[in-house]
Amino acid sequence: MPDEQWDALFTALRSDRDRALASLVISNASRASEVLGIRCGDLDWGEQVVRVRRKGTGAEQWLPASNDAFVWLRLYLDSIGPLEPSDPVWWTLRRRRRGDGTPARQPLNYDALRAVLRRVNDALGTNWTMHDLRHTCARRMLRDRNLSLRDIQTILGHAHLSTTQLYLEEEPEEVIRRVHQHLLALKQTEPAINAVPAPARGYDAADLAVLFGEVPRHHDQ
């Protein structure tokens, strides 16, 4: 996901909860099931790390998160009231009536999370998924020379380094974007073309002038 697309997605999110959740995933590449399983006791505000339970193995692992993610988490949690350490972090924003008739929030599940992304995709005309956020985080880490492939493997929770290496494959759109930037940078440093070069034998000077943009071509009427 290009940075400008991430900015558009983030701007389209409607609540502090959704901004907190997206900011968390884009900063530590946690899977959907892992981030939804986070409980209040899994948040370390001082160290700015969160504890997840890895998909498949259930192993607990602390993952770093960005300062922005913790800011949005604070705003979101302040808005829903006090929670116990064993309570889930993520709750529905709307209260539903329980069996006794009292309204209450429900823990956010995968279907509700997909509905959040579906609304954003409908607004933007895109088709982003939670895995795209995880993939984007991984690609950002790969571009950082301070992080080794083993570091990224640990954060992604891959059992094998070969799985992490799959993220090294470049998206064609990203390659094209970078090459366009490269060509633009070259154009800005190249000297301006002030004159049409002398024609080689067999080439008409007038045709070369048209080719290099010096004069317009006049068509026969």
Rank of each mutant, 00 (worst) to 15 (best):
D3P: 01
W6E: 10
D7I: 10
L9V: 15
F10N: 06
T11V: 10
A12W: 00
S15I: 05
D18P: 02
A20C: 06
L21H: 01
A22T: 14
A22H: 03
S23R: 06
L24P: 00
L24D: 00
S27P: 08
S30W: 01
A32H: 01
S33A: 14
S33C: 14
L43H: 02
W45R: 12
G46Q: 14
Q48H: 12
Q48R: 15
R51I: 02
R54E: 13
R54S: 03
G56C: 10
Q61R: 07
L63C: 08
S66H: 10
D68V: 12
F70L: 11
L73G: 03
L75Y: 06
D78I: 02
L83P: 00
L83S: 05
D87M: 02
V89Y: 01
T92V: 04
G101H: 10
G101N: 11
P103Q: 12
P103C: 12
L108N: 08
D111E: 14
A112P: 02
H131K: 09
D132M: 11
L133C: 08
L133H: 08
A138N: 07
R139C: 04
R143I: 01
L147M: 12
L147C: 02
S148F: 06
S148R: 07
T154K: 08
L156H: 05
G157M: 10
S162P: 01
T164C: 09
T164P: 04
Y167S: 05
E169G: 08
E173Q: 15
Q181T: 11
Q181L: 12
L184Q: 14
L184K: 14
E190I: 06
E190K: 11
P191G: 12
P191N: 10
A195D: 10
V196Y: 02
P197S: 07
A200M: 11
G202A: 08
A206N: 06
A206L: 12
D207P: 00
A209V: 03
V210T: 13
V210Y: 09
F212S: 08
G213A: 10
V215A: 02
H218L: 13
D220I: 06
Q221V: 06
Q221K: 10
